[in-house]
Simulated assay, not measured.
Amino acid sequence: MSAPAAPDHAVADLLGLVALGELLAFERMAADARFAPDLRRRAALSEMAAAEIANYRRLADRLGVLGVPPEEAMAAYVEPLQGYHDSTEPRDWAEAVTKAYVGDGITDDFLREIAEALREPDRQLVLDVLHESRYAEFAAAEIRHAVSADPKVAGRLSMWARRLVGEALSQAGRVVAADQGALTALIVADGRTDVAGLFRRLTAAHTARMAAAGLNN
């Protein structure tokens, strides 16, 4: 059964939010590739960045079809999303891949939940541009490798991951304020009002993700 129709402005706002996230992720990953300890890893993160900009183009094209300039759809979210990245600059390769793994993971979980309120083709578009599992697996493997090489790194990366989540949740509040009710409208359109349940599911997924990478929640 398809989701109930969401308000048109809410759909455009969500696509704008996702598009900006992809654009900033491209910039971040391309810059963070400099931390890579070898060319193989540098290429891997660069490929991840290339996927992000390709996803941005798909979202921008869809916004164009809806008659909304991408820059207008993204404008309200620039401050909170840029604020998140500015406050979570990684210092080395291990922190860079942890940010890609933890930060992108919890964001994807949230967007996957919200996307259930969309009708096609927008629902599938949002689901398609979420980060591929192979990238998460690459990042998790890099974290486990760093911990295996130096077990003391686990404590530092666990603290870094907690900071990432804290900053993400803080900026999420600003996103909700900036979108003037668009995300709330999507949740209501899908008939889901259990916000507490949503955050329980996000927390459970994050805990499992941390454990899979060998980090403490």
Rank of each mutant, 00 (worst) to 15 (best):
E116C: 08
A178W: 12
M159Y: 11
E142Y: 12
R163A: 01
R156C: 03
I114G: 01
S158G: 13
Y101K: 08
R162D: 13
V195G: 02
E142H: 04
A146V: 14
H145Y: 11
A172P: 00
L125K: 01
A196G: 14
A189Q: 03
V195W: 14
D179T: 01
L183A: 04
E116G: 02
A100D: 07
G166E: 10
A115W: 01
P151I: 09
E167L: 07
D190Y: 00
Q180M: 01
A154H: 04
Y135G: 04
F138C: 04
G181A: 02
D104G: 12
L169D: 08
V153A: 15
L157F: 04
A139Y: 15
G197Q: 05
P121R: 13
D122H: 15
D109H: 04
P151S: 15
E142T: 03
M159Q: 11
A136I: 04
S170T: 15
L186F: 04
E137T: 15
D122L: 07
S170W: 14
R134K: 15
G166Q: 05
D179K: 09
H131K: 15
A172M: 07
G181R: 12
L169W: 13
A189R: 06
P151D: 12
L198C: 01
Q171N: 02
E116V: 03
L157H: 12
L130H: 03
G155C: 10
A154T: 07
D194M: 02
L186M: 04
A196R: 14
Q180F: 09
A100M: 11
A117V: 05
L157G: 05
G166P: 01
S158Y: 07
E167T: 07
R192D: 12
A168P: 00
E113A: 10
A117Q: 06
V126F: 02
V195Q: 05
